[in-house]
Design a protein around this nucleic acid. Structure first.
Lengths: 199, 199
DNA sequence: CGGTTGTCATTTGTCAACAATGTTTGACTC
DNA sequence: GAGTCAAACATTGTTGACAAATGACAACCG
């Protein structure tokens, strides 16, 4: 985890985690002034952070009224999101099989062992963090990470209902299966496992 | 064109148009202070607007340094973007064929006639505007427009190289072909025309 | 001469006060 | 008692001043 230099990023990261871990439920309003006193800073950086999160799809904003935590996507929208994520991550994995850079495998292995522990524990925020980190690693490797900014808002919208749709340990085994196929150089198997994992 | 109440939106729209129409080339730095005096307002709303456009992918930001107009996506990234746009817009059109609401056809027809004129003229900004409006109409109809915020940043990134990759009049005929198939209730033909149009 | 350090101008980051807008409350009318 | 209006409040929008970070360039040292 890298710590951001500017307040804006710090606030954004903090709020993002609180939303994704379910501490802030959909519909909860976020007031600039309250957050400012909570973080002990002025409203400026708070505004920037809220704008960030709004564009990422985690908050929705109404002019002159404020922002609140976004609702889970509808079934229709979620279905589209699933296909988009598959498209992006599959493209990245396919690209990796062109190079088979072992550096990625190392990082995925490291992530996996942490993820396994987290799934056993009770810190949902940690689980979300590592799950996202895993997929981010996949996306980052392709084309100098050019897909990340495309992928992130899509991923985040999907994770708005994270807590409700997953058996954590099963999720770990799916990750492990993907990495195993990559280790073995079995491209089709990796892509298939990835596709089945993203639902 | 709807005029936004707050300065932030006005600035964002204005800059967005200048970028998409090619008046601001990739790499061009945008300084908060300069823009503030140019628009005759303070730096606050400018900041917000730049943050907006950064999240939309039109600008890239470096902390403590500033923003500049983003480069065209790489070939690899562009290819992914094409698939994402196809997925989103095809989903929307498929959903429309479930209802066949004639209101959309009316709006598309109106857009088409304006678009035809624009493609004949020389105002590239106008052409871009109407082209985006056409596809936005498609996306907006499905699921109460829930796909728009997903679709917009993807669309915008693709339009960063708008001027270079299109014969305008041919683009018009492709739009017309899609609408024709929708009028006739020929779903497969509409989807196929859409897929061929997005390249 | 190559590299390093210090200074300076430029630009973004942060802040607190003020203005404008939206929402709620409560009196007033019918 | 239901509806309407206005005033009070809460919240976001905007502003200008100040602080901190960055990059360029010149002076300095090896």
């Amino acid at each position: 985890m890298k710590l951001a230099a500017n307040l804006q990023e710090q606030v954004a990261s903090h709020l993002r985690r609180r939303i994704l871990s379910g501490q802030l439920l959909p519909g909860t309003p976020l007031r600039e002034q309250s957050l400012a006193v909570e973080f002990g800073i002025s409203r400026g950086p708070i505004r920037d952070a809220l704008l960030h999160l709004t564009k990422e799809g985690l908050l929705i904003a109404k002019p002159n009224v404020g922002v609140r935590v976004a609702n889970e996507p509808s079934g229709f929208k979620r279905n589209v999101i699933v296909h988009l994520r598959r498209e992006i991550e599959a493209s990245a994995v396919t690209a990796w099989f062109g190079t088979r850079d072992p550096a990625l495998l190392k990082r995925l292995d490291d992530n996996l062992s942490l993820y396994k522990d987290a799934c056993g524990g009770s810190d949902l925020g940690q689980v979300v963090e590592l799950d996202m980190a895993f997929h981010r690693l996949l996306v980052e490797t392709a084309d100098n990470g050019s897909l990340v900014d495309l992928w992130l808002p899509i991923m985040l919208r999907m994770f708005l209902r994270y807590s409700r749709h997953r058996d954590l340990m099963e999720s770990y085994h799916e990750h492990a299966g993907i990495v195993r196929a990559m280790h073995g150089g079995r491209e089709w198997e990796a892509l298939e496992a990835l596709k089945l994992h993203i639902v």
